[in-house]
Each structure stands twice: as structure tokens, then as C-alpha cells.
């Protein structure tokens, strides 16, 4: 499978198209945005409208996604996954936390297979993880996806976030989206675009990590991560039954 080069707008269009009709089989897309862009959570509509009225979209692509959570700075530093599932798929038929659990674990296992120490954060350990970060002077920044933690997102041993997750559920199917940091994003760019002080960029830097950092700057080629994720998804989603009651 080759690396898909995309834009933030194209990604959101693909996502919308998947749930516009009934999803019959699992479908996914893994890619990277060559140009920087900001993808805002559905509840950040006011920020989206403000950025458009200020003409910021002339500087950078600014789009609104249909799932929740904070802003994501997409670009060559982040691998994006969109995964559409039938409503009766084993990953989708239970609550949304179950879907997050399956995808978070798949990412963590894939990362560990690639030499990155990572685990999916179970809900029972969420509070401890947040407290540990806060004790280091790193409060959550809910306006940014990577500034906060949610259940089953993927972190390293220090609780620094590597993979962010979000989801959209409709009667036609479930759409899971994930972003894996392969290199360190320019967090100052995100703060500047959203009118947050630059000191918050340092908090974002310290609350997150990336594959290159975890592999001590000998990064795995993007195409290898894509192949590994594709293989893991193929194994987990198409080899397993497409009906409920199967605990993957």
C-alpha cells in the first residue's frame, strides 16, 4: 500500500462521504497532508467561523470535522487514519469507548512492533495520567487535541501523547479517525493561528511525543508505518467476523 498524499479538506470530504450512505464493509484510508492545515473539532464552529472571517484560511487550510475534540494541526508530521465501519461490526456495535479501545490498542501494538514504547490509556488510568502531567506543570489544553488526553488514546511511558482519536456515529455507520505524530509538529504555529500565547506551545511540546523522538531520531520511513497499520487493520477487521459479540 502506498502512502496517500492528501489535504485536510480532501480527508474531511472522504469522511463525510463514508457516512452519507450505509457502510457495508470496513473501509479505511491512511495518509498524510503535505501542507499544514488546522482541523477543528465539531464543537469549535465559532473558532472556525472567526478564522474564516479573519482571512486566516488564506494563510493555511482551516476545516471543521464532524467528530469531537480539540484542534489538530495536520501536516507532514502526522499520519492520519480514517476508518469507516458498519454499525453491526464487532468494533462498532458496543459503546464508543469500546471502539476507541480497539483502535487504540491496534495503534499501540503496531507502534511497539516498530520499536516505539507505547500503550493505550485505559479509562481507569486517565486521572492518574492527567495528575502526573499537571504535577509537572503541564495542565490540559482542551482546545487542542494533543493538549489533552481521552480514554484509549496512545501515550508513551511518561504519558506523553502519540495518537489522538475521535469518532462520529450515525445510523449509517461509525467513523473512527486517528492522528499519529511521526515527527514533532510546529506547535507555535497552532498557538499563533488560534491566538493562544506561545508559552502554550511549550506545554504542547512536553505533553506529546512522536515516533522520531521515541526512536532517537532514526525515524522509521512513513511508508513502513503505513504498511504496518494497513496489515494490522486488515488482520483485525477483515479476518474477524463483522458481527457483534466478538471481543477482538
Amino acid at each position: 500500500m502506498t502512502l496517500l498524499l492528501s489535504t485536510a479538506t480532501e480527508d474531511q470530504l472522504w469522511n463525510r462521504e463514508q457516512l452519507a450512505r450505509v457502510v457495508r464493509d470496513p473501509r479505511w484510508r491512511i495518509g498524510i497532508c503535505q501542507q499544514p492545515g488546522v482541523v477543528l473539532g465539531c464543537s469549535q464552529r465559532a473558532v472556525h467561523d472567526r478564522l474564516h472571517s479573519e482571512g486566516k484560511r488564506n494563510e493555511i487550510e482551516v476545516v471543521l470535522r464532524e467528530s469531537g475534540g480539540g484542534a489538530v494541526l495536520v501536516g507532514p508530521w502526522m499520519l492520519s487514519l480514517s476508518l469507516a465501519l458498519p454499525r453491526d461490526h464487532a468494533w462498532s456495535v458496543q459503546g464508543s469507548l469500546h471502539s476507541y479501545r480497539q483502535l487504540g490498542r491496534l495503534f499501540a501494538e503496531t507502534l511497539r512492533a516498530g520499536g516505539v514504547g507505547a500503550h493505550a490509556l485505559c479509562p481507569e488510568k486517565m486521572n492518574d495520567a492527567q495528575i502526573a502531567l499537571r504535577d509537572r506543570g503541564l495542565p490540559p489544553l482542551a482546545w487542542a487535541c494533543f493538549g489533552d488526553l481521552s480514554p484509549w488514546e496512545v501515550v508513551n511511558a511518561e504519558g506523553r501523547k502519540l495518537v489522538g482519536l475521535a469518532q462520529r456515529r450515525r445510523s449509517t455507520g461509525t467513523l473512527l479517525v486517528a492522528g499519529l505524530l511521526v515527527e514533532r509538529p510546529p506547535w507555535s504555529m497552532l498557538c499563533a493561528l488560534l491566538d493562544h500565547p506561545d508559552r502554550l506551545a511549550d506545554i504542547l511540546r512536553q505533553r506529546t511525543t512522536d515516533c522520531a523522538r521515541e526512536l532517537r531520531n532514526t525515524p522509521t520511513p512513513l511508508s513502513v508505518w503505513v504498511q504496518m497499520l494497513h496489515a494490522a487493520l486488515t488482520d483485525a477487521l477483515t479476518r474477524n467476523p463483522c458481527v457483534a459479540s466478538t471481543e477482538a
Binding site: 473539532g41 465539531c42 464532524e66 469531537g68 469518532q167 456515529r169
Partner: peptide
């Protein structure tokens, strides 16, 4: 997150009425 209908609107069973966000999931 968003209302798709207004008070007084006639609706059919199963019709989407609103979107709500819980734990980063839009329902």
C-alpha cells in the same frame, strides 16, 4: 453540538434531530 430541527417541526421516526458530543464522539 447542533440542532437539525426546530420546535414545531414535523419529524419521522428515526429522523436525525440533533448532534451531541460525548468523549470526542459525535452522536
Amino acid at each position: 453540538d447542533k440542532w437539525l430541527v426546530q420546535e414545531g417541526d414535523a419529524v419521522e421516526v428515526g429522523q436525525p434531530l440533533a448532534n451531541a458530543v460525548l468523549l470526542k464522539t459525535n452522536f
